[in-house]
Amino acid sequence: MTTSVKDQVVEIIAEQAVLDPRDVAMDATLEDLGIDSLGLVEAVFAIEETFDIQVPFNANDPAQSEFDITNVASMVAAVEKLVAQKAA
């Protein structure tokens, strides 16, 4: 059984939020999930390690980064795009 990118990203985010992945809503924001700046940096690191990709993310000003952290769905979409780019 292969796990989808979406499931893996949600799992990483859930771990930082100390939640069950099933409780992570796709429209939830980092704030909703109680993930602070350090948690976000760790999540980005885990995503990079899991998919062997480079995430364009600057903790200095996360909102200005190319990596869209609006909510869980936007992060999943961004990772899916990066994974597809890597495969291409």
Partner: peptide
Amino acid sequence: EGLRVMSKDGCRPFSANRNGM
């Protein structure tokens, strides 16, 4: 680098376009 607070292109304190140390 891991902490992601470093600038890749320059140190611009107090400038609106600053992007790290």
